[in-house]
Computed example of a mutant assay.
Amino acid sequence: MAVDLPAPNALEHDRRRTPTPHPEQSGERMSRNIFGPTQPNTGSTARDHLANERTYLAWHRTGISVAALGVAVAKLAPNRGGHAVAAGFILLAAGLLVSAYGTVRYRVISRQIESGEFAPATFTAVVTSTIVTLLALVAVVVLL
């Protein structure tokens, strides 16, 4: 039993002649992107944006962890009173600083990816890490 199939060129020709109806005209709903405009995935653009997002989430997760440690110290440090609250507040501030830096850095890198340029943040990363480390050490000294 043989089936007659049209030639491949005939199928392509029919597809080109038949206009595709607009989604609103065909009764379908248009999909909308709630996250902003889409971009063509040329080169490594998508991969770079996803890596930037993962790095941002890591900064944010670290900031939340440090802030949560501050709350735990303030609430759970036995017989420390005002010292525990002060140390907790210092750690909470350090956690917020880490999250804020991650947010600013994420936005800067996104703009750099779009412009096709990149400038490493050696100075700001070192300064932020140094400040957070010093705040953590001050919190430990306050608890002693």
Score class of each variant (00 low, 15 high):
47 R>H: 06
32 R>F: 04
4 D>P: 06
63 G>I: 15
106 Y>A: 14
104 V>Y: 04
119 A>T: 12
110 S>D: 09
122 T>Y: 06
55 T>C: 11
91 L>H: 05
14 D>Q: 03
136 A>L: 11
24 E>W: 02
95 G>N: 07
71 V>Y: 00
66 V>D: 09
54 R>N: 14
138 V>W: 07
27 G>S: 05
30 M>F: 01
30 M>H: 06
1 M>Q: 07
45 T>R: 15
84 A>L: 08
140 V>C: 09
65 S>C: 03
82 G>C: 03
144 L>N: 10
144 L>D: 13
142 V>P: 05
83 H>D: 05
106 Y>P: 15
104 V>E: 15
58 A>C: 12
120 P>G: 08
139 A>G: 13
46 A>M: 05
133 T>Q: 01
67 A>R: 07
136 A>R: 04
82 G>V: 15
108 V>N: 09
135 L>D: 08
23 P>K: 07
117 E>T: 12
83 H>I: 00
119 A>N: 03
81 G>K: 13
113 I>S: 07
76 L>S: 05
24 E>G: 12
70 G>V: 07
16 R>Y: 07
95 G>T: 08
109 I>H: 06
68 A>K: 02
72 A>L: 11
27 G>R: 02
64 I>L: 06
81 G>E: 10
122 T>E: 06
72 A>Q: 04
10 A>P: 08
113 I>F: 08
64 I>A: 01
108 V>G: 01
69 L>R: 05
124 T>I: 13
143 L>N: 02
82 G>P: 01
116 G>T: 10
66 V>A: 00
82 G>I: 12
10 A>H: 07
34 I>S: 08
34 I>Q: 02
7 A>I: 12
26 S>G: 13
88 G>K: 00
121 A>G: 10
24 E>H: 11
63 G>K: 03
43 G>Y: 04
89 F>I: 14
132 V>L: 09
72 A>F: 09
80 R>T: 14
46 A>G: 06
119 A>M: 02
103 T>M: 10
105 R>W: 02
17 R>E: 15
107 R>P: 00
109 I>K: 05
5 L>C: 12
32 R>M: 04
4 D>F: 08
123 F>M: 15
